[in-house]
Design a protein around this nucleic acid. Structure first.
Lengths: 192, 192
DNA sequence: GAAATCATGTAACTAGTTACATGATTAT
DNA sequence: ATAATCATGTAACTAGTTACATGATTTC
């Protein structure tokens, strides 16, 4: 057997460790609780849940609903819990970033001022949303009852969000001033 | 035409914006300069360079070397530069994180103390290496001559690295104490 | 009346990773 | 001796994304 990574299946198991949920609800958990670490879409979730069921790592109950579509509520089994813990124990604990945002800033001198402003503004909006979600959770009763790791991860996430906001707030004017100054003196890179 | 993302091809073009390089040297740039935003391996780089050449976005010169393998030095063409700038202008400026590290911490209460320690120690090593590389670059002459965006991105990266290190340094003992306390009182999640 | 939410799923496509293949040279 | 560095490339595999398909209900 090879090194198990945290793929879509393990990711779903992780979400189900917090309690039973439908595919749709699992997605919601990745927009809030897990948003700073992982993200998956429906196109990954539904096939993953089907595979987990076949493997006996989750149970399903179909729930009739009036007024809205029926749903399938999944819950993790004992075998699923074991498998998930095994993954957490043996996976390489990597931290990967794929930041198109960072690349745009890196090459800021090649781009018009409006693009840089738009990109920084948009990022600030995203960061503020994330900060709100996390702060709300940390202030909730749910958070007080949660295991230490979950609180730690949330506080860690919030700290990084705030570091991002602080940096952008404090340094963006410096960046735009320098870009303006450079554009005046050396036109090399834009024209080259 | 659809929205161009920063894929392996655009990523290579970005690396070549800093000057001509071989596939091997491009990889090096992603271990230092671009390490906090993107990462790609040889398996992505070589096919991408071949495709870029076919598209006329890069030029190649084969260079004979004595004592080491010959290499192919790639340089970006005018068309390549235009294409890259177009990508930067129109790509969605996302910032994606995939953190198995974060997931392990999130579920820390399910894992033995040694795993948590190992994961945090390893992360500190990585962060320290990255900080060293970035600090060295920021103190160099190269950095003083670089466009504002590049310095901004480097300072931004360093700030975040330091926020990570600070958080881990200040809060890890709190985490391990709480985990120890919880393990004593409630054994629910481990045994369930 | 339009938009958002709730809800599941598939198929085609895109794209990245890992392992393999090869091999000289240099530093420890 | 052994590991690391320099150097390129392919093939098979893995896995995620996007678009499509459908549709009732609720909120604005």
């Amino acid at each position: 057997m090879k090194q198990p990574h945290i793929d879509a299946k393990a990711t779903c198991l992780g979400a189900l460790m917090l309690g039973e949920a439908s595919g749709y609800e699992i997605r919601k958990r990745f927009e809030s609780t897990f948003s700073h670490m992982l993200d998956i879409g429906y196109g990954s979730i539904y096939p993953a849940l089907a595979a987990l069921e076949r493997a006996g790592l989750v149970d399903v109950v179909e729930v009739r609903q009036s007024g809205r579509p029926d749903k399938k509520v999944y819950s993790i089994t004992e075998a699923g819990r074991k498998s998930f813990i095994e993954t957490l124990l043996t996976c390489p604990a990597r931290h990967k970033v794929r930041s198109e945002f960072g690349m745009v800033l890196f090459f800021a001198d090649l781009l018009p001022r409006e693009r840089i402003d738009a990109v920084l503004d948009q990022r600030m909006v995203e960061l503020t949303e994330l900060a709100d979600i996390t702060e709300t959770w940390l202030a909730s009763d749910e958070s007080r009852a949660a295991p230490a790791g979950i609180r730690f991860a949330a506080e860690y996430g919030l700290e990084l969000i705030n570091a991002n906001r602080r940096f952008i707030r404090n340094k963006r004017s410096e960046l735009t001033e320098q870009l303006a100054a450079e554009a005046g003196t050396t036109e090399k890179r834009n024209i080259a």
